[in-house]
Design a protein around this nucleic acid. Structure first.
Lengths: 229, 229
DNA sequence: CATCTGGTTATCCGATTGAATAGCAGGTTG
DNA sequence: CAACCTGCTATTCAATCGGATAACCAGATG
């Protein structure tokens, strides 16, 4: 979490919209800082003053842009999930793959997303531990639809006989937690293993480890059988 | 998190230690309430006054027993890990099992612990997201030793050729997150799936799902093969 | 050029926080 | 029984919180 220099490039495009441009810039800057601070300290622990401080603006400005603290949180989370959907949109090539291979590609993409934006898991975990109206709002609006999509993918694998039939809620929490936790707990990784989770090699190796454990049963077993045993 | 009635049974055992007995009772009561509140709101979000309120004592008393807020947190976390070690101690029978079966038994025990005490994962995740001195304290004192124990178990499986060789830190975060997350995020489970994670059937099914995905590669594949495919 | 609008800052408010201090009451001890 | 610890409560304090209001001023408008 680093403070961001204020109003670096103004560059008014044409005429007339200079003010609107700066307003949008300021809004986006506050949102990004809000994501970081909310993720690190939780809703109650984060202070509007700190967020404004990191963004280099007066704390009263947040009230102007977002109404109140909860409005800021909801705007930040909306931005978070819209970015998730953008970055997780599958490239066209994936449609042609068989379902298991498509799921492996999805895992690799999701693990890289978790590494790139650890604040996502952090902010949602913080909110889910407490039982707030904000959690219910985010679930109804973002989490439940996303989850139904994952459920369809999972059921497809099971129906094709290519995956064992376990309760879907278990599958969901196991797979997402496996992908998120290492990056969500980057500080713990640093102190326990001395490993920097920003390292590309660590990220890719983690994705492959998940795929090996979850989706390469036969190949995994074969690899095991090829050992001395 | 429910408020606890104050001083229910005093029952002075013999003579002389009536005061000491009540003191220990009060201390334990405060610790339990502190665990719940710290887990739900994080260190900064939790107020000493709230913890004292749930315990039914004056907030000044916490200063008397634990010095300051950080002292209370450390005492609570110490209690947490000592209870973990007690409840995770393997019954003697497990020593005779082959390593893979022993690990399965360990998984079942750990999943039940996570369900019984979701505040453990919650409090440590909250602290790890922020990079505090408290996190480093807990890692040096509890997490690192526990982790080395898990690493030895894992390496034993790999050496016996009974488990695929993936980076240990990946294995660690995948397996513990898979066990913890559903119970840590009990509120999300409630709203997304309408499932109560206190249900024994849900807990046991989750443990078996983890075992099926992680440790029953051959059996899992066989189960898959027996379908129409 | 004069006026107006809207993004932003400065400042104030009551509530709550962690911490500190003084005092009380009842169990303990000689 | 009387003096004395000690576990506990009541109260105070400065700091910080979220929210509200008024002033400000650069840029849009006519």
């Amino acid at each position: 979490m680093t403070a961001v220099p204020k109003k670096s490039g103004k560059r008014s495009g044409a005429a007339g919209n200079l003010r609107a441009e700066r307003k949008a810039q300021t809004r986006a800057l506050i949102l990004q800082c809000a994501l970081d601070v909310f993720a690190e300290r939780g809703f109650d622990g984060a202070s509007v003053r700190d967020i404004a401080g990191f963004a280099g603006v007066n704390h009263g400005l947040i009230r102007y842009h977002f109404g109140d603290k909860e409005g800021l949180w909801k705007a930040a989370v909306t931005f978070l999930f819209e970015r998730l959907h953008e970055e997780m949109a599958a490239p066209g090539e994936e449609a042609g793959l068989p379902p298991l291979e498509a799921t492996k590609a999805w895992i690799r993409r999701y693990v890289r997303y978790c590494a790139r934006h650890p604040e996502h898991a952090r902010i949602m975990v913080q909110e889910s531990i407490r039982d707030s109206g904000r959690l219910r709002w985010a679930i109804r609006r973002f989490i439940k639809p996303d989850n139904e999509q994952l459920q369809r993918r999972f059921q497809h694998l099971v129906k094709q006989g290519v995956y064992p039939d376990i309760p879907h809620h278990s599958f969901n929490y196991i797979i997402t937690a496996a992908a998120q936790s290492m990056f969500m707990l980057a500080n713990e990784m640093k102190y326990v293993y001395g490993i920097d989770v920003a390292d590309e090699a660590v990220i890719d190796a983690h994705a492959e480890a998940i795929i090996k454990l979850f989706f390469d049963h036969r190949a995994g077993s074969a690899a095991v059988r090829s050992r001395k045993s």
